[in-house]
Design a protein around this nucleic acid. Sequence first.
DNA 1: ACCTTGACTTTGGGATCCCAAGAATGGTCA
DNA 2: TGACCATTCTTGGGATCCCAAAGTCAAGGT
Lengths: 268, 268
Amino acid sequence: MVNTSMESIDTQLAAKIRHDIVLGNYGKEERLSESQLCETHSVSRTPVRLALRMLEQEGLIRRSEGRGYFVMAPKVEDILQAVQVRGHLESLAARLMAQSPNRHSVLPTLEIAIEKIEGFINAGKMDEASLSSMQMQNAIFHRTILDGCGNNFVGFTCSRISHLPMLEVGSMVFDREVLASKEGIDRSLFRLQLGNSQHKVIFEAIQSGDAVRAEGIMREHSNTMVEYIKIFEKRNEELTIKDLIGYSGLSITRAIAPAADTDQQLQT
Amino acid sequence: MVNTSMESIDTQLAAKIRHDIVLGNYGKEERLSESQLCETHSVSRTPVRLALRMLEQEGLIRRSEGRGYFVMAPKVEDILQAVQVRGHLESLAARLMAQSPNRHSVLPTLEIAIEKIEGFINAGKMDEASLSSMQMQNAIFHRTILDGCGNNFVGFTCSRISHLPMLEVGSMVFDREVLASKEGIDRSLFRLQLGNSQHKVIFEAIQSGDAVRAEGIMREHSNTMVEYIKIFEKRNEELTIKDLIGYSGLSITRAIAPAADTDQQLQT
DNA sequence: ACCTTGACTTTGGGATCCCAAGAATGGTCA
DNA sequence: TGACCATTCTTGGGATCCCAAAGTCAAGGT
């Protein structure tokens, strides 16, 4: 592996292995040996060890007593639980934001994001570019609240679990199959409209300093994604995370290896 | 540094450096160089690098673009924010626990913890041994709810921020100065009584499946620690984390380097 | 006197080597 | 034939060496 990008080699390696684990390319509880990973990825043992430490921190692998690592592949159920935790943290952020004395400084940013999303909904187009832009604006909305609520640990804690797919703040989920039909597009637009309506209510609650309401609506807003994924689960009993990512609007690579900057991937 | 314990050397090293950072032994934004840490701790660069990665994950140091690390020493304000986040996560756990169908299986554990704490309060002794035992039971109470709520990510997420002092689940804070006087002991006992009363209410809410109440009381319960620390802040404008740890019942070493097993340190 | 440009130095990242601990396998004895 | 022990091999952890990049300092030119 040649270190072509700016990222250090262990970070790239961790992304690769994380990708493999999340997509289920490793067997359940398969053991990972350092030397084996060395030759499969053509790197030295040093970055391998660093990458394994990262993945251990993320809970994707476990270190057995003295000997070796083995994978802890997350299931869809784990994703749902993590989404619930993130949503709960976001509801805290919304409450704090509504209580914050300088909450008015972020209102314009929130308003612009809401208006832009509304613009895309009104245009009615559900192409890749529009979805990507909406995801971006959605991420801005959520990120702004998380980062501006006054409690830096809320955002920090969210980032500690955002290595899983669908866990990046502001990510969204779309069903690509549904987007193939006219009726499916309308249903998706309705979902987006509902979500953006919740954005508006959250905005108003923050504006008027109604902390309880801001928290409540944000909780409901976050719960939407959980419910939507559960629909997929009902449709397919053996739903894997790979399937779930397939439902999302963006490519698998983007979904698993979240970019460091503001651009986004999945959904609310 | 000789690896005498079972812990790997990088973990010990990370604990040492974390200790130094949290206690303010490094200057604000002081730069940390690998080679410098090598000779001060008499280890090779490999474990140093691993330790630095850990601390980076924990947010205690930052990696500058291409060159070097610098410390991000947390302030008391950061601890308060982190405690708030942990409390919020615990309130989620309490709600989920009250909704859980098999919640009755954990009720005996909770009840025993409550009764034991009550026993210590009724005995009225506030010696080190009693405090330590109460902290242990308090930790069991909180841990049981976090681990049994059905959402494994709540506990996992809590553990991601528990490297800070006072952030270990179930930790408690005592004012050692207050414990010197009879009147202070009575006040501390009152606080403990109040806390254990909240434990009882949480127990009842879980037992009866009242999720909203469980969440609300747990939130209030967690908020108690924040308010108590704020009292210290009012008393001392320049309160440092070192001072804060000094107020707790256990030694600084124990407070900073949390044990891996069930024994505990600080407090709610 | 100031700016520019070159070499030197410092620092991190990666590779390789060494060592200790544990698991597996094969041999031997009962 | 089965159990126990020793040897060997695999695997992780630590140390050391090498290299590339960036920062620094000084000298020379304008």
